[in-house]
Computed example of a mutant assay.
Amino acid sequence: MKPLRIATAVLVAAAMATPLVSSASATPQHQPPGQSKKDALRAEVPKGFFIGTAVAGGGHHEDQPYPDPFSSDQPYRNVLAKEFNSVSAENQMKWDFLRPEPGVYRFGPADDIVAFAKRNNQVVRGHTLLWHSQNPAWLTEGGYTKAQLKQILRDHIRTVVGRYKGKIQQWDVANEIFDDQGVLRSQDNIWIRELGPGIVADAFRWARQADPKAKLYFNDYNVEGINAKSNAYYALIQDLLAQGVPVDGFSTQGHLSLRYGFPGDLTDNLRRFARLGLETAITEVDVRMDLAPGATPTPEQLAKQAEYYQRMLDGCLSVSSCNSFTIWGFVDKYSWVPVFFPSEGAATIMWDDFSRKPAYHALRDSLKDCYCGRK
């Protein structure tokens, strides 16, 4: 990171330290984003690069004291359209949301996201097809035979990927299949437990058949650097490629916390997957911080957060195979972080009134200053 950027982040953080807005209904205290199309992250992206965000909805949002953000919050939609040229369904394409009952698909919200993206000249990341979490009870407790489970998964992938054929740029086909020790989730992943590790290769093959042009990815957290978990993916992908399995990409999510150091070997890790002939991506970035309920971040926390965001983006931009950088939500009031990490928060790049944190400006600076042969 350039020293000038860090200094700028500190100054901006200090200027914004008070007052801060923590309530969605509060009167905005900061200058709102400009209306010019050039005053946006997507206006600065290098050629062939995508800056994206998750589209809030489903999952934890259904238990919160507000209506569905994507369908009900017009200012949110305006910022979503203006700032990003890529969108991901946060929960709307996950099994428990998309498949509420056997044989029933709830496609409406996902269809709306895909249509919104088309209207706003955005690409879409599909998330996710095979995962151990957020599966419906009818699936996990249904007592299906192995043959029935395989048929259910095959039909799901063919139906979902086929529905959006030509409309999804990248699919997270297999999500979080290893634990932090690099051990395959053979117990808590119903697909691997019941059908064996080979089902992962099957999922990629079925997805390729359903949409030959979509890029097919492995996706996971805590694989930013070179460690036991990312090593497990590296070995698995080598084996799958040798078998002719259509794996196109490897992505690291990028859920970070100021409690921990930054993964300094991010670039080296992305580059080794690129040497396998893969595309790479960073898909779910947020940077949470220790924050008591009702408290506001300090200038130092905001500057450190901006640094982490910027280093993640810089790492991606420095690797030619990394063409997609997605943040996991852009406004604090809809972030998943306080729900799952009650003592942490303020993890996104905007305050509740959509005004911009230092982290936003850090990302924009990196996009503007990119000398990576992409523009």
Rank of each mutant, 00 (worst) to 15 (best):
P33F: 03
F178W: 09
S335V: 07
K213P: 00
G249A: 11
E224P: 06
E62N: 11
P299W: 09
I199S: 07
P67A: 03
V114F: 07
A43L: 01
E344D: 14
R364L: 00
R77C: 03
A115D: 12
P33R: 05
G264R: 09
L129G: 07
F250Y: 14
I349Y: 05
Y144I: 04
F84M: 00
A281T: 09
G34M: 02
N222T: 12
A117K: 06
V319N: 06
D39E: 12
Q181W: 05
D248M: 11
T53D: 08
L363G: 03
D369M: 15
G329H: 00
K2H: 13
H61A: 08
S335T: 06
K150I: 04
A242Y: 04
N323D: 14
I177L: 08
E62L: 15
Y164K: 02
Q238R: 13
I152N: 01
A306I: 00
T53Q: 06
E194T: 14
Y234F: 15
N222C: 05
E284G: 09
L11Q: 15
D202Y: 02
V200I: 15
S230R: 06
Q209K: 13
F107K: 09
R288P: 01
E62P: 09
T8E: 15
Y233C: 06
S257Q: 12
S23K: 14
Y334W: 15
I199G: 05
N227R: 06
F107N: 09
Q122S: 02
R193F: 08
M350A: 14
D180K: 04
R205F: 12
I168D: 14
R275S: 15
R374N: 06
W131A: 01
L302I: 00
R42H: 01
M16N: 10
L270N: 00
D111F: 03
G254T: 07
T128W: 01
I237K: 15
K2V: 10
R158A: 15
